[in-house]
């Protein structure tokens, strides 16, 4: 069981919402991963849908690159749509 791969678990809490990452677990294959996720992460009625992805397939950004990746966005306030007057007719913005 030590050799069982790690899986990342995503749960959709209700229809229409996104699947959100909730944690990870070990399982021998995808079917067992879904069952384990059901038992570990939805036992308190947390979800209506489960995605599992082998952790090895997750490609992550390098923490050492965070300056070039994320710093430049910090002073670009104009990218937030807060400079527009919204007409009253426009709802749900």
């Amino acid at each position: 069981m030590k050799n069982w791969p790690l899986w990342e678990i995503f749960i959709r809490s209700k229809a229409g919402l996104n699947h959100k990452h909730v944690g990870s677990l070990h399982a021998a294959d995808e079917e067992m991963a879904i069952q384990n996720a059901r038992d570990v992460y939805t036992r308190r009625n947390e979800g209506v849908s489960i995605w599992v992805v082998k952790s090895e397939f997750i490609v992550a950004s390098d923490p050492d690159d965070s300056d070039p990746l994320y710093e430049p966005a910090k002073d670009k306030v104009y990218r937030h749509p807060t400079f527009y007057e919204l007409p009253d007719e426009v709802k749900h913005m």
């Binding site: 069981m1 070990h26 038992d39 570990v40 036992r43």
Partner: peptide, 10 residues
């Protein structure tokens, strides 16, 4: 394993 422990108690 932890996951099956939880499965059985569920």
């Amino acid at each position: 394993i932890l996951e099956q422990d939880i499965a059985m108690t569920n």
